[in-house]
Amino acid sequence: MQILLNGELHATNAQNLSELCAKLGFAEARIATAVNGSFVAATARSAMPLTEADEVEIVAPRQGG
């Protein structure tokens, strides 16, 4: 299926958000996630199914003012 990952089309067969993060190599990384505009806590990722055209955000710390 195709999802929108951080604003870009991304093909994946990940069944849920936790699987997607693992496939991207983020299993141990310091990240936070949102699906379709809503925050998904780390502990809720495996219970968050992914479906066609979902908009997934994966963010990490960055410089800020």
Partner: peptide
Amino acid sequence: VTVSLRRESARARTGQGFWALI
């Protein structure tokens, strides 16, 4: 110190190094 969060690329992983610095 103030910080932000931004989209993390699976290739660059920029945020991981920045967090170590902070």
